[in-house]
Amino acid sequence: MSSNSTSLKELFLNGIIKENTIFKLALSLCPSIAVTNNLKNGIFMGLAVLFVQTMVNITISLMRKVIQPKVRLPIFMLVISGWVTITQMMMAAFVPDVYAKVGLYIALIVAFASILARAEMFASKNSIMPSMADGLGMGVGFLFALTAISFFRELVGKGTLTLPTGLATQHVFTFVNTKPLLIMVLPAGGFLAVGILMAAFNWLDTKYMKKASHGTH
């Protein structure tokens, strides 16, 4: 299988760049618009998905030889919802203020196409190490996308940055005496931000990846 031909590093990078859930596959756009008007919420949402994706991939990979192919999808769903419930409870216990805002979307991770797709397409056919690398890569790619979107939206839309420690920076635009673009923290701005960053990501990707592939091959 592919585990022999591709290295773990390549598997890991695949999820971040070539198959980035949000910027390349355009999946899971609902949380990427709904929770990203605040850097802290965005980062925690990304971490939750990173955790669930990795753990689901490991679990499915471990169980791949005992799962009956006919009932594999219900089993995948059970595994995913199990890990999502664990994440949900952990967040409710340790970061209750974030959970109050993004809790609904944490529960929705169950329905993420990307997580089920990786379980079905990758983890159920590969051994643990490649599956873990793949899960980590997809998760980190998602975390990166959500961080970028929420960083951009909060900075432009409110002029502040709420760090994961809960500390918010000062209004950064005060020195030029301008008001922030309020629309960016509203839902409409979410679409604009995702679109702009998606375009930027793909532009950079085509620019540098072409060079890289010319160099190696």
């Binding site: 008001k179 673009l181 629309i183």
Partner: peptide, 10 residues
């Protein structure tokens, strides 16, 4: 529309 929503006061 962008400006009206972004800067409702101004």
């Amino acid at each position: 529309a962008f400006l009206l929503i972004s800067f409702p006061k101004l």
